[in-house]
């Protein structure tokens, strides 16, 4: 499924909350490439900037959030790539959902409680293709519900008449209704029970194989990512600290923070191992430590860590071409971004 052709390239993206000297830098200099047909996992603790990154690259940040630099290059299926951040308001409306759809964190609150499911599915179609007939729209909505395993006669139901899992399925169906190339999933299953999580993600992966979209999957649940994604990027303090194919990251993570994350949940398969948390707490974005922002909590910190920020780059390992890390422990062969 995965090709090396990029579909979304984030370059040196910076997102701040607030303006001027008091601004909090929530996303710092992030570069990330999503390839066609790939599931890219984005993991990190709360407050590491995962969701801000997702909102930033789709320009959905609510004030006082603001993009302070960088570009997000989108490669349409046919035609020239363009920068999402410089689209006009009108073009941006056309771009949203048709090219990049999002499934949000709150499964419970993503649907407007006073409108029927059919209304909320319909208005996407109506906004993006005003010429589409009511009959065709209706048929398309029913098709999408069927696709995500919901009986089409639930069309006329209100959100409160559906269970949490059903609502999130409706959201996934809604996200796919315009056949976007990129689907961003911002902790899509946090509010659901474990069984439902697996069911929905399994279904999503199956749909991806059928429809061929790419997924950015944001979660703090690294175990889910290891299972479902092709590549994983780990964020800490607003930066990407490591990025690698899922299996490589799971088996042999380079950054001590990734190691810490992997050590803090039980393995699903394989021998039993000791669980360990990461000591300390996430950094205060207003007062970031100097140098590597992880060094105060890092068990392997040494001299340069407190002084200079390590750059993200391909490490000097046999598989260094496919992964990158930002850590002084791993000399960088060539920088990324």
């Amino acid at each position: 499924m995965t090709t090396s052709e990029p579909v979304l390239e984030i370059r040196n993206l910076n997102v701040d909350y607030g303006l001027g000297p008091q601004a909090v830098h929530a996303v710092r200099d992030v570069s990330l490439t999503l390839h066609r047909g790939e599931v890219l996992g984005l993991a990190g603790e709360s407050g590491s900037g995962k969701s801000t990154l997702a909102y930033g690259m789709t320009r959905l940040l609510a004030p006082p959030g603001a993009i302070s630099g960088g570009s997000v290059i989108y490669h349409p299926a046919d035609g020239e790539p363009y920068d999402v951040l410089s689209l006009s308001d009108n073009d941006l409306r056309g771009f949203r959902w048709a090219e990049t759809a999002i499934v949000f964190q709150g499964a419970m609150n993503s649907l407007n409680p006073v409108h029927k499911i059919s209304t909320q599915l319909n208005d996407v179609l109506q906004a993006h293709d005003p010429k589409m007939s009511a009959h065709a729209r209706n048929a398309r909505c029913r098709e999408m519900l069927k696709l995500v395993g919901i009986s089409p006669d639930r069309m006329e139901a209100y959100p409160h008449q559906l269970s949490g899992g059903m609502r999130q399925r409706v959201m996934i169906g809604m996200a796919l209704i315009l056949q976007p190339q990129v689907v961003i999933m911002d902790e899509p299953t946090t509010a659901l029970d474990v069984v439902m999580q697996r069911q929905i993600l399994g279904q999503l992966i199956e749909l991806r194989e059928r429809l061929g979209f790419s997924v950015i999957f944001i979660t703090h649940d690294l175990s889910l990512l290891v299972e479902f994604s092709d590549r994983i990027a780990i964020m800490y303090g607003g930066r990407i600290v490591e990025e690698a194919p899922a299996t490589a990251l799971y088996k042999d993570s380079l950054h001590p923070y990734s190691e810490g994350l992997l050590g803090s949940f039980p393995a699903l398969r394989g021998p039993r191992r000791e669980l360990a948390g990461i000591p300390g707490s996430p950094p205060d974005l207003k007062a970031m430590p100097t140098g590597c922002s992880f060094h105060p909590r890092c068990p392997k910190a040494f001299d340069p860590c407190a002084e200079t920020i390590p750059a993200l780059g391909h490490p000097d390992t046999p598989d260094g071409g496919t992964r990158s890390v930002a850590c002084w422990l791993h000399p960088v062969r060539e920088p990324v971004g």
Binding site: L60, I102, L111, N112, D123, A127
Partner: peptide
């Protein structure tokens, strides 16, 4: 937010 993201 969802409504905005939908491009309405």
């Amino acid at each position: 937010t969802v409504a905005h993201a939908k491009g309405l």
